[in-house]
Design a protein around this nucleic acid. Structure first.
Lengths: 338, 338
DNA sequence: GCGCATTATGAGAGCGCTCTCAAATAGTGG
DNA sequence: CCACTATTTGAGAGCGCTCTCATAATGCGC
């Protein structure tokens, strides 16, 4: 009882060979039902589980996938983005009996030192990379290594790489169109970082909505917020001389900053200026006034990334998978009207 | 170049045997410096990394540790507790070249189905369990299996089990003593779940502070909040007839609920009733008025758990490690005075 | 320079599994 | 009932590493 359980041992107990037990464990065909039953009984009785490392070595499959969260994004870690993402990710991992490994880096030094570890042979079957700034070096190395991987959030050089992303262009377009339909005339925007696709795409959506309604783009109404609350506060103040009557802000954190700026400038929201954010943070719902925003299906997002990765592992990375998920406009009070 | 790198291969290139390369890779003694150098050069040049699965099989060490987050606590996942904890945990994992695996369960079914996976042979070197309700069955199974593990948050039957916990008793005691020193006379408390040590200990701290100042415990001033905002709201309303002039609330989420209740009852905070929370959520700082609360060193917490686990893996689980971390009273405005 | 203790090196077994391949058994048609 | 095919089973090699143990090389004292 004290001795370690192996295939051999189970075979002995069931009166068959190691090979047959292996077939049963892996649900392969060509085992007499009666024998299969007998083996399964022994397994259930003993609580045998195959030795992961041994199986990995022999089969060249570890049953582990990695989730890589780069340093740049750690700041976002205070909003519920990652927890939600993790829920989606772990959910699918659990369903498919895959073990999730988590790589979080805290400094550039750590990144360069530990990236090789992600690629280390005999470790992972595949990797989910949360994309940060454009051009994460890890992505190039993954591509080169041949290890299956998928990116959450679209990288710049996207065509050859599989990714799952939110349709930020359409999300932003919908938000801005809503402001247009509400009759707002001078719609400004505070943009996110322009080295992230999320930042670029949300600006692109803003442009498209305006153009679609036959308006011109006024560059003076576009201010850079870098996805940071403080920067957005400043950006909002810079926009005020242009007398916007609405502003589309590329994240809720920034929208909160913009709201502050508007308040301290003595302007009414949504009376004087309508505001729409992006992300639907919990803080958005309890802002005053509650913030109209664009909600992303974050959990589905994580789930879909893993599902797609598993599919890539199974069937190969060709063709690259490009998946865009729709967003939802959550209308609250900062946009006025409804 | 295309062929897979193995110890054998490296040995060939360096003109030594597999065994010698292995010694170099594992920094063992008894290799001539000149030979060591030559081998290291080949390794650097080729980018060789040992095959994890093969090493695991041979050495019976995988270099993986698990972090298990039980279902019950997922609700807490919206506050920054887990992100912070993960930062501490991954930090130490990175330092020690250990790979972190994350197990999150979403239903009772998943738990019972997947617990064995955590214990599966050839998978993990050790486990960090975030304790939830008392008596997590996983803890008993881990103890039985002999796999090294440590619990974050103290389990009930704590003596035989290693854990890292916040000193909730002292934390609560300090908070309540502060209210006493401020001259509050009728200090109530809203408790957390009494099947979690955090809930029990914070109540115990409340009691101790009162007794230490020579006061009696008035059970009518103790109301159950179950760690939920809504429940705390109700609890606060139930307390009001007792005319408390202060309330110690066992979590910030609940404190926010209590604050709401006080407002809607037309009472002034801290004028009529002082409030102290616990946890120092971001929401605590921006509550109105900003909430006095007890801050826990969450990141250190996670870091210490992993460090201790690694030590247990190295040196054995005897004696069990019991670590208590101090808290910090963050004084803001809801307690009045300073 | 010789015998000895020490240190450096390589051969080989074995970790627990998968997978191929040949042998054994069961099933089929005439 | 035999020849033949289809299915079931087991023997054995091999995955890439660690670790023990025997052997080879080296250092040292006299």
């Amino acid at each position: 009882m004290d001795e370690r359980l192996t295939l051999e041992k189970i075979g002995e107990l069931a009166g068959v060979s190691r090979a047959t037990v292996s077939r049963v464990v892996n649900s392969q065909p060509n085992v007499r039902p009666e024998v299969r039953e007998r083996v399964l009984a022994v397994i259930a009785e003993t609580g045998y589980q195959p030795h992961l490392a041994a199986r990995s070595l022999a089969s060249n499959r570890t049953g582990l996938i990695g989730l890589v969260i780069p340093r740049i994004l750690q700041s976002l870690f205070t909003d519920p983005y990652y927890p939600r993402l993790l829920q989606g990710v772990t959910q699918v991992c659990n369903e498919h009996a895959v073990i999730l490994t988590l790589f979080m880096f805290h400094s550039e030094d750590e990144e360069t030192r530990l990236y090789p570890r992600v690629l280390r042979p005999g470790t992972l079957d595949g990797v989910v990379v949360v994309s940060s700034q454009e051009e994460d070096p890890l992505i190039a190395r993954l591509a080169e290594s041949g290890l299956p991987f998928i990116v959450i959030g679209r990288p710049t050089d996207a065509t050859a790489v599989s990714y799952v992303d939110v349709d930020n262009v359409t999300g932003a377009e919908t938000a801005v169109s809503h402001l247009i339909n509400l009759g707002r005339q001078r719609i400004a925007t505070i943009t996110g970082r322009q080295d992230m696709s999320a930042g670029l795409d949300r600006l692109e959506g803003y442009r498209r909505a305006l153009l679609a309604s036959g308006r011109a783009i006024d560059e003076a109404l576009i201010a850079a917020g870098e996805f940071e609350e403080g920067q957005a506060y400043e950006a909002m103040l810079r926009l005020l001389p242009q007398q916007p009557d609405a502003v589309f802000v590329a994240s809720d954190a920034m929208a909160l900053g913009a709201l502050n700026a508007l308040h301290s400038a003595g302007l009414e929201v949504p009376g004087d200026v309508a505001v729409v954010g992006y992300d639907d943070l919990p803080a958005a719902a309890i802002a005053s006034p509650p913030l109209t925003t664009v909600r992303q299906p974050i959990r589905r997002f994580g789930a879909l990334a893993v599902e797609t990765l598993l599919n890539i592992i199974e069937t190969g990375s060709e063709p690259p998978r490009h998946i865009l998920l729709p967003t939802e406009l959550i209308i609250r009070e900062t946009c006025g009207g409804s």
